[in-house]
Design a protein around this nucleic acid. Structure first.
Length: 823
RNA sequence: GCCCCCGUAGUCCAAUGGCAGAGACAGAGGACUUAAAAUCCUUCCAGUAUCGGUUCGAGUCCGAUCGGGGGCACCA
């Protein structure tokens, strides 16, 4: 075998080929050894969708996840760093339609491609734990969990208006609607009323919100905020309005019960059952019906238009304001949402912009009931929303907003006319899809018994083979055509019954996959409790901010449900979260059509794995986007060879006594180790790399013009460099380690212990300021006392002459760095 | 419209409220070389978007403005 001598240039291709088979044999990242005494840590990268080979985005994500996993391994932890594939979903189905073959083929081919790319990219994954969500061994448990949610009343069906793409003839998830258009065919998405399966995530709204307290400081603030906004809890009151000619009063929700006296009309959502009922049999029924038709035809893109004029129909019916007996006309309009609150509102145009816009459009009265000091909304057309004194409000007159809210809530409750209430922006999670490539919903519909869950013993309910099925979207699941599969017996009464033909949203698959890794081949249960107790919750989760809301929210929801089922004893799945940025090119997302696509395989070919990983990590903070136009992979190559060269220069033997080494280089080494640790633990990987570069520079200098290559400090520094580098550039690091006379794998070498004594400088330079301006500097001991420090500063000749006898008002001494003399 | 984040050399980025520069890219010069590459060394470049405030001291905290980015989408 060829050996790399120190005279040879650093050859990344050779080094990569050399080490991969050796690592395969050593398996340094196996985490399942039962006799492993190391403390455990669970580091998880969001699993990929197998949509082709790995791209630049994967390269960044896995480089960052690897730094964390490899760091904790060096720190002596038994790190579980697993990987799998989120393998159900639309792209496979589209590819299957295009190629006229089973989606399994495309999916498993891509998984194999990605897997081999990950190996070449030197990801520190534990390959023993791999699974794919499209494996029946996995989706069996999706189905099992579905039936358990069904048992608990958390999975239910209801009619609802859903996103509908007329082009693809299918229901779309919210995230598949981009700016009102179908992400696939660009058709304008409309609403369609369909009977669909839902998970009752709204039951968990408060817990999802309140439990975020324990994630504070551990998850990015931005993600917590997005989740809070998404859940959107609001505090207000439900108020009952009697309707003329109707026995039941109508309840409205408002966040401003203090403005009840300012209500001048009521609006019901045009697409609500209440609107239809109120219009039925009246003179305006025809007008209402045609209005409703118009709304239903309107696409999302129209609904999204910002300054859309208000429209509606006067139903010529009246509600009675419970506080003053006033007759309020009832209108139907599409600006009120049917599925928020009760689908009906009291309109207070003076203090709500939307109501004011509507009132002005329909020439309805506007009555100010809060004096906010702002201009009259009647004149300006701008509703006043600030605080102030109540007027025209009976007993509430003179109160401020908050006092008025408290007073009116109390009054309404006493009179049985209403009470304080909460509402949420969060809606239940629509989980059924009319698609083939997903988990079949394990429900049988029986004329006699209704919805019957498929019993555990019959799971997995296998997805029928695609052969013979028309997978093209046509508004109904392709599974409906698999008649043999659909027609079945009722598990309860054994009578004829039909299977549910929908499949589950793939977000279901990813909502609990992290629980599967510790026992990924378990055939008798979704996850093993003992293994869960040892590994979970995930210590560190790494992934894109694109999943800030849905995936993370759904996972949190599942965890809480499983907690309630007593299958877990924690309520938050991910203790710490890191969101990496995107890889862009010239400021915008990479795409073939934009012509700025950078191919990962080309970059790896040209610069090597280590240089690409290093470029990703060094480009800036991990949360920031990496603009590939700004990074220099060739600069990374240069640095790596510079570091590699050091390992050939060291002439002392392995095991040399470092304590005999040259002191200043030793200090630099220990400081670098210490700083890099701190930087990695606070996710400032770019700073950690900078510290290594600094140490490389110092070591180079020591060899060339300092203590010389034979000094033990040079070996100590170079070994530290190799170990720190092993987090980012495993091939280079391993090669250095070997040249330093050590055996593989460097991944398990262990982080050198930092000697605190070597972190203290003998002398530090302190600055002396007068009124915050630097006047002089002096060298002092790092442990100088405050009094000595101050005295020394005041005794400096330059300071004495500068002061010219003036007596300082105050002297701020911050030993050993700074003295500020205030005159 | 509401909410949030960010503005530091030509570029990417560092800096527990305490000397604005750790590191890198690009640029310039030099050493080595017949030459080039590689390597090594040296070096240029900002006062932190703007205005005001708090403080002994502000890139850092607070307020406003300008610029860039993100989330939500009539949620009453």
């Amino acid at each position: 075998m060829e050996t790399s001598s120190e005279h040879q240039a650093y050859d990344f291709a050779y080094v990569q080929e050399k080490w991969l088979p050796i690592w395969d044999k050593l398996e340094p990242f196996k985490s399942g050894r039962s006799d492993d005494p190391r403390p455990k840590k669970y580091v998880l990268d969001m699993f990929p969708y197998p949509s082709g080979d790995l791209h630049m985005g994967h390269a960044e994500a896995y480089a960052l996840g690897d730094v964390i996993a490899r760091y904790w391994i060096q720190k002596g932890f038994n790190v579980m760093h697993p990987i799998g594939w989120d393998a159900f979903g639309l792209p496979a189905e589209n590819a299957a339609i295009k190629r006229n073959e089973d989606p399994r083929i495309w999916t498993y081919e891509n998984i194999a491609t990605q897997k081999s790319s990950m190996r070449r990219y030197a990801c520190s994954f534990d390959w023993d734990r791999v699974f794919n969500t499209c494996d029946p061994e996995y989706y069996k448990w999706n189905q099992w969990l579905f039936t358990k949610l069904h048992d608990r009343g958390l999975a239910y069906r209801k009619d609802s208006a859903v996103n509908w793409c007329p082009g693809c003839q299918t229901v779309l998830a919210n995230e598949q609607v981009v700016a009102g258009l179908c992400e696939r065919c660009d058709s304008a998405v409309t609403k369609k009323k369909l009977n669909q399966w839902y998970f009752k995530i709204t039951d968990y709204a408060d817990r999802l919100l309140d439990d975020m307290a324990e994630l504070e400081g551990k998850w990015p603030e931005k993600v917590l905020l997005m989740q809070r906004n998404w859940i959107g809890r609001s505090q207000g009151a439900n108020v009952n309005f009697v309707i003329e000619g109707r026995t039941e009063p109508v309840t409205i929700y408002t966040t401003r019960p203090d403005t009840l006296y300012g209500a001048t009309f009521m609006v019901v959502a045009a697409d609500s059952a209440l609107a239809a009922e109120l219009a039925a049999g009246t003179a305006v029924e025809a007008e209402f019906t045609s209005y409703l038709e118009k709304i239903k035809a309107a696409s999302d893109i129209d609904r999204l238009a910002t300054d859309r004029p208000k429209s509606g129909v006067d139903l010529k019916r009246f509600a009675i304001n419970p506080v003053n007996g006033e007759k309020l006309p009832i209108w139907a309009s599409d600006y009120v949402l049917a599925d928020y609150g009760t689908g009906a509102i009291m309109a207070v145009p003076a203090h709500d912009q939307r109501d004011l816009d509507f009132a002005r459009a329909m020439k309805l009265p506007v009555r100010v009931v809060v004096e906010t000091g702002e201009e009259d909304p009647n004149e300006t057309g701008i509703a006043t929303t600030g605080d102030g004194k109540l007027v025209n409000s009976g007993a509430l007159n003179g109160l401020t907003k908050n006092d008025a809210i408290a007073a009116i809530n109390k009054q309404l409750e006493a009179d049985g006319l209403g009470k304080s209430a909460r509402n949420y922006r969060l809606r239940d999670w629509l989980v059924s899809r009319q698609r083939y490539w997903g988990t079949p919903i394990p429900i049988v519909h029986c004329d006699k018994c209704g919805e019957v869950a498929v019993p555990d013993s019959e799971l997995p309910l296998l997805l029928p083979v695609a052969k013979g099925l028309d997978l093209k979207p046509k508004g109904q699941s392709p599974l409906a055509a698999a008649t043999e599969w659909v027609n079945t017996k009722c598990p309860k009464c054994a009578g004829p019954a039909m299977r549910d033909t929908d499949t589950m949203d793939t977000f279901v698959d990813s909502s609990w996959y992290y629980l599967r890794y510790p026992s990924s081949t378990n055939a008798t249960e979704p996850f093993n409790r003992a293994e869960i107790d040892t590994w979970l919750p995930v210590d560190q989760y790494v992934g894109g901010v694109t999943h800030a809301i849905l995936h993370l929210l759904y996972s949190r929801f599942f965890t809480k449900v499983l907690y309630d089922m007593k299958m877990l004893d924690f309520t938050e799945p991910f203790t710490r979260l890191l969101n990496q940025g995107m890889v862009v090119m010239d400021g915008s997302a990479m795409s073939k059509s934009r012509g700025n696509l950078v191919r990962l395989s080309d970059e790896l070919e040209n610069h090597g794995v280590d240089a690409i990983r290093l470029s990703m990590v060094f480009s800036g903070p991990p949360e920031d986007d990496v603009d590939w136009a700004d990074v220099s992979p060739s600069g990374s190559v240069k640095f790596l060879s510079r570091a590699w060269r050091l390992s050939g220069d060291v002439t002392s033997a392995p095991g040399a006594d470092f304590s005999k080494g040259e002191i200043s280089l030793r200090k630099a080494t220990h400081k670098a180790l210490n700083d890099a640790s701190f930087a990695v633990e606070s996710f400032r990987f770019n700073v950690a790399v900078a510290r290594v570069m600094e140490l490389v520079n110092a070591t180079r200098k020591a060899i060339d013009s300092g203590c010389g290559a034979a000094d033990p400090a040079v070996r100590e520094a170079t070994e530290a460099i190799a170990i720190m580098l092993s987090l980012v550039a495993p091939f280079t690091a391993e090669e250095m380690w070997e040249r330093l006379g050590h055996k593989p794998a460097i991944a398990l070498a262990g982080w050198p212990t930092v000697d605190p004594a070597l972190l203290i400088d003998d002398e530090v330079e302190a600055v002396i300021q007068i009124n915050g301006k630097i006047k002089d500097r002096m060298n002092v001991s790092p442990n100088i006392s405050e009094a000595d420090f101050e005295a020394a500063a005041l005794a400096l000749p330059s300071i004495i002459s500068e002061l010219a006898g003036a007596v300082p008002k105050k002297v701020i001494a911050r030993p050993p760095k700074l003295v500020n003399i205030v005159l």
